[in-house]
């Protein structure tokens, strides 16, 4: 036989030997162990604008990063918690952006009203548009959401609606860059933790059950279409919020809000960061969005790159970075005798 040491042993850390979410925290160290990563994330995100103060360009990147993170969270929520794959995230950005432009420019709503109003209106419209395919299972949702952004672009272009290919200009900008930074960061954190709360609640369980087995959910007296519509509404609200914000940052709403990047980067981020845990989406964006800024020079080649990385991740490491790191964080590994 061998000289021992030929099997890697994995042991869960003591604190994780828990029974159904109940565990005793007995020392400061354990508290730190549990809340450390969370604090790191929150503090990191909040400090980011301060750290990047000398680089105004990168401060803007942080804003865009947050918008992408919102979209990625929405995608992750729909795909891995309810089982609906949304291939057209840019639809949400576009709807939110155009609504914000209409509210702000045409109806003269102030910025702090136009963003939430646009998010709400966009979410309502998106849910109504998607509603017909919600009673169907499988690929219909993916197909229909894939079509909408392309159709919106064509329709706006063809009929010269809403400023046609020039878009709507003259939106109010944020009063200051710090406000601009922190408003989206706070929105992101609120969405992140709020959505996690929803998912950990019983309604989250019901949504999970819809993904697992919708027939049984119906037999349990719950309207599956209603639950799905609610989920779509939540997701599109989050997405439209990002879109409305973005329109105000750019002070412009145009066809590029329906750009492919808004559809594919969130998907790639979720795949890389790991699905099912909302933090994975944020982590994925933290990696991808700065990368995409560096690759700005390459134009559409970036999309090729995302898609390649995305496919590679799906095939080779389908769990994603975040669950992988969580696993490593919660386990000891050591060599043991076989």
């Amino acid at each position: 036989m061998s000289d021992g040491r030929d099997r890697k042993e994995r042991i869960d850390r003591g604190i994780k030997v828990r029974s159904d979410g109940l565990y005793a925290v007995s020392s400061l160290r354990e508290m730190l162990y549990l809340s450390g990563p969370r604090i790191l994330l929150i503090a990191g995100l909040l400090l980011l604008p301060l750290l990047l103060d000398p680089f105004p360009y990168w401060k803007r990147v942080v804003n865009i990063l947050c918008v992408y993170a919102l979209l990625a969270i929405a995608f992750d929520f729909l795909a891995n918690c309810v089982g609906l794959v949304c291939l057209g995230g840019s639809m949400f950005i576009g709807l939110g952006g155009y609504f914000a432009a209409v509210f702000n420019v045409h109806l003269h709503l102030p910025i702090y009203l136009s963003i939430p109003a646009a998010a709400l209106a966009g979410a309502v419209i998106a849910t109504l548009l998607i509603l017909p395919c919600l009673s169907l299972r499988g690929v219909y949702f993916a197909i229909v959401t894939l079509m909408y952004p392309l159709l919106f672009t064509r329709v706006i272009e063809a009929f010269d609606l809403l400023g046609g290919s020039n878009g709507i200009t003259g939106l109010d900008s944020f009063p200051g860059t710090n406000l601009e930074n922190y408003s989206i960061l706070l929105i992101l954190l609120a969405v992140l933790f709020g959505l996690r709360r929803v998912l950990n609640d019983d309604i989250g369980l019901v949504m999970h059950a819809v993904k697992d087995n919708d027939q049984s959910v119906r037999a349990s007296g719950i309207d599956v279409v209603g639950i799905k519509a609610l989920a779509v509404f939540i997701a599109s609200f989050i997405g439209c919020l990002g879109g409305a914000y973005l329109a105000h940052v750019y002070m412009w709403a145009g066809l590029s809000l329906f750009a492919l990047d808004f559809s594919i980067i969130p998907i790639a981020a979720v795949t890389i960061g790991g699905g099912g845990v909302l933090f994975g989406a944020v982590v994925g964006c933290l990696i991808l969005v700065p990368l995409s800024e560096f690759l700005r020079f390459f134009g559409t080649f970036r999309i090729v790159l995302y898609c390649t990385v995305l496919t590679a991740f799906i095939v080779l490491k389908s769990e994603g970075l975040m669950p992988y790191c969580t696993r490593k964080y919660e386990q000891f590994e050591r060599w043991a005798d076989a």
């Binding site: 795909a79 891995n80 089982g83 794959v85 291939l87 499988g138 690929v139 993916a142 894939l146 492919l260 594919i264 998907i267 790639a268 795949t271 699905g275 559409t300 080649f301 999309i303 090729v304 995302y306 898609c307 390649t308 995305l310 496919t311 799906i314 095939v315 389908s318």
Partner: peptide
């Protein structure tokens, strides 16, 4: 199914944008 959809979509996009 989720992976199937995403993968074919990603491949398609990669080819077209490439």
């Amino acid at each position: 199914q989720i992976s199937e959809i995403i993968a074919t979509y990603a491949i398609g996009l990669a080819i077209i944008e490439g």
